[in-house]
Write a protein that binds this DNA or RNA. Sequence first.
DNA 1: ATCCGTTGTCGAAGCGCTTCGACAACCTAT
DNA 2: ATAGGTTGTCGAAGCGCTTCGACAACGGAT
Lengths: 337, 337
Amino acid sequence: MVTLAEVAQHAGVSASTVSYVLSGKRSISAGTRQRVERSIQELGYHPNAGARALASSRSNIIALMVPLRTDMYVPVMMEIAIAVATNARTHGYDVLLLTGEEGPDAVRRVTGSGLADAMILMDVELDDERLPLLRETDQPSVLIGLPADTTGLTCVDLDFGATGALCAEHLALLGHRDIAVIGEAPAVYERHTGFAERTLDGLRSRSRELGLRVLHRPCEGGYDAMALTLARILDERPGTTGFVVQNESAVEPLLALLRREGRAVPEDVSVIAICPDQVATQASVRLTSVAIPAQDMGRHAVEHLIAKLEGRDKDEVVLIAPELTVRASTGPAPAAP
Amino acid sequence: MVTLAEVAQHAGVSASTVSYVLSGKRSISAGTRQRVERSIQELGYHPNAGARALASSRSNIIALMVPLRTDMYVPVMMEIAIAVATNARTHGYDVLLLTGEEGPDAVRRVTGSGLADAMILMDVELDDERLPLLRETDQPSVLIGLPADTTGLTCVDLDFGATGALCAEHLALLGHRDIAVIGEAPAVYERHTGFAERTLDGLRSRSRELGLRVLHRPCEGGYDAMALTLARILDERPGTTGFVVQNESAVEPLLALLRREGRAVPEDVSVIAICPDQVATQASVRLTSVAIPAQDMGRHAVEHLIAKLEGRDKDEVVLIAPELTVRASTGPAPAAP
DNA sequence: ATCCGTTGTCGAAGCGCTTCGACAACCTAT
DNA sequence: ATAGGTTGTCGAAGCGCTTCGACAACGGAT
């Protein structure tokens, strides 16, 4: 293991000089800098992370808390996690992966031990028990998701309210009048993760303005659950011609069931999905969709966190504007019979 | 920030005593231990990670390199990552998330800086460029996946050879004679990740013994690609009655296409998928499948790594035995016309 | 009573780095 | 020629912990 001192000796300078070459916190003559850099190269020197953390009280690590559950939107979570890791690296940070298992204790542990300089929390619940802790430490943090009370917090999320509104507008514009929302599993609503409710609120209020009738049904996903849900919807509102699906695992079942029912997409009914682009393009019908911008969310989270670490930037809520991509699953409402 | 020294003072003992209470490396009288533990509680002490790492030259961190790609088996990757993180915690380790982006440099950086005590590499290629580095450092590591040359390495993977054989046996037992393998995208084969080839080898050699005829076709996944692939298979071998699918995103398209062709599953054709259980149970037909045991893989990887860190355990290749679960997509081959 | 082996505690060194103040050496303005 | 300001480098302190050797205190064996 090569140390700073060895590099210093090899380059014929003092340890502090090497340190300043590395950090750039004091000016160094071009000659000295080059000699030091050559020595670093030749010896294959890597600064020791622990020593650095101890001396500077900064670990250059960002903690990322991911949900333990793997029941929902896993690819999105993964994409966010990878985006966080990649973006963090470009700012010189590494990412520590924490699962939700430890719960609030993980926040205490990481904050207390100086393991990480900052945290990113995913899958935030409306009344998340980690939030009080976060507020009382001075550890910078960013949430991905939106709790009920955002005072003193920085949050990044897709604007699900606007997403719902966008779906309503698109269907209204095509002449649909009766639409159904197929939502996440009931467990998701009970967990109060917020995004599902916000989508629904946005969709409902815009629908009211546009004169759309909305029926909302949570759905477990999978074929059997979807079959039941669809039957109930069509039973209650036979005239339903527009569907908004916010549940990855209900998308394909819905399409299959509509096909089986003899309802053509998009001739008889239109379907909008709220899902990653990959799902929308790989489905059996190329789906009109509002994408979940996982990459953007990860990037924004990191950038705001870095800003906070550097003392710029104050708390704020960043809502990413939704974008609706029209594909082959939506079309004009059929003429009333 | 509470320090060891403060705890020591509060408890009326020396710093080293507190340290020994924490580590248990020397015997401490019951009374002293209790006083120290109370002080720790009262002051809310958390050992400083950097100082600890510096003094002990052990960071208690395991680095996990995940692939940057999100084009394949993402849920599996995520599940493994989470299993790794969870299991690592039970052994007192945290997990550092590295993406493949840095490539071999990440190995150098982590090893050199003492950031992590050990590494787990996912998505290992047959001739992975990170392997030489791994072999020449004394950093303990475990691969998830199997490279061409495993000397001096510890690897954990599903036994894909046995998986292939198992599929062949199941279909043969049901009386099928002509079977087709729908594989991963050509890119996966070109990348030489190995698992796809191993499955095929296992399946082919067992098929030879059992008198099965095998046709193998890579497939991009998605409806269009699958339609083309299926058409080619049925054109070339109209008598094909068994399918083995090793490609998550081809499963549902295949089922839909078979339905459209009027071939009933499992009456006319049988389908076995090699995929996570969740996919198998949520598909439009409950699929007979060989599960990809993500949890087990993560757990094994961590346990072997810990064993190596503690000086037990030598290098070895751990192949997890595949398990075939019979569901509703396989049945007796139809009587020959 | 003496010696030896345990057991429990302490002091001090040191892990490899950052950072502060000090200070030559030089340049520029008087 | 001198004062004052830069610029580049160094030495030393110290971050909070682990760990080694030392050693008092005590018990049991002789």
